[in-house]
Design a protein around this nucleic acid. Structure first.
Lengths: 160, 160
DNA sequence: AATATTCTGTTTCCCAGTAGACAAATTTGC
DNA sequence: GCAAATTTGTCTACTGGGAAACAGAATATT
């Protein structure tokens, strides 16, 4: 034997990950960080945040949706949703209304300003992925989408 | 026309997402939350955290690795890594040492206790994915791994 | 009808993680 | 050899997000 003491890795490529690179959670985290960085590099200048836009967009699509249901669907905790919604309200982007038949609930709608925000940024937001060069070719990218959608239970409903 | 005012969605399945379900960032986030929850449901009882274990495991694989390189590889910010490392040190899991040839750097190694921690939890950690039933069949799961690895630039090196 | 249970959103308190400035050590350019 | 630029880790201050306890309203139980 020539050398029993391993030299510490000197560059990122030398760092051994072994079984970690087979951990789904680890891979998802790396991927998300990567996407996140690309997103800000591309759209951060407009003050656009992915979570923020998603919430407004879903309210746009589902006017009158209740806060809790929105949180459930986007997997945001209710406590956190309260803060986001308050912030949107302060910025004049959404309107809250308590329906008469259930005075616990709060129905959400976009104000005209909110609709303006969404329509102003929707195209940039949704075309971001496509604009971004990735190591995957189009076919692989489509596969990745399909697999993730299936994994999270969002397999697009065949219209009944 | 019968009704122009859409009824607000009443259950999660009714919530329209439209183009959002084609957003890579959104899908990755949903998937990560899902994996995270499954992980804690399964291993939270042992006080095991995914990020924490990953750091210790990579130090185990790369004894003497410097803090910054570790942060770079795991995409953790240096400032945050400082806190994690200090915490590990306080718990007696790692030892820090400044090499003579570069007195800025800090080399990290697991203590015997640290090695004990890693070997005690490695099997549970890495077999977690496999134990967990997912909506994907084994073939799809393998595809998902391969695509994610390629996406994040971790395509397993063919030994040269 | 009175009580208990559940549902909905909120509040308070906490922790993980980040940004940015910083000090010390090192490398580079002259 | 020395000043300037870069690297490495740390500090302070801040933000996003979560857990748990809470209050008011609705529903179930009796």
């Amino acid at each position: 034997m020539t050398r029993t003491i391993p030299r510490p890795p000197a560059s990122m490529e030398d760092v051994a990950l072994d079984r970690l690179s087979g951990s789904l959670g680890f891979l998802l985290r790396l991927a998300q960080v990567q996407v996140f960085e690309a997103f800000f590099e591309d759209l951060g200048q407009y003050g656009l945040r992915p979570g923020e836009f998603s919430v407004l967009y879903v309210i746009h699509l589902n006017p009158g949706i209740r806060q809790g249901l929105l949180a459930q669907r986007l997997r945001i905790k209710r406590a956190h949703m309260t803060k986001m919604i308050r912030n949107f309200e302060e910025r004049g982007l959404i309107a809250r209304r308590t329906p008469d038949d259930d005075r616990r609930a709060i129905e959400l709608r976009l104000t005209p300003e909110g609709e303006g925000f969404v329509s102003a940024h929707a195209e940039a937001f949704f075309s971001h992925d496509a604009r971004r060069p990735t190591p995957l070719d189009p076919k692989e990218q489509a596969q990745l989408f399909a697999l993730l959608q299936k994994y999270v239970g969002l397999t697009p409903e065949t219209t009944p």
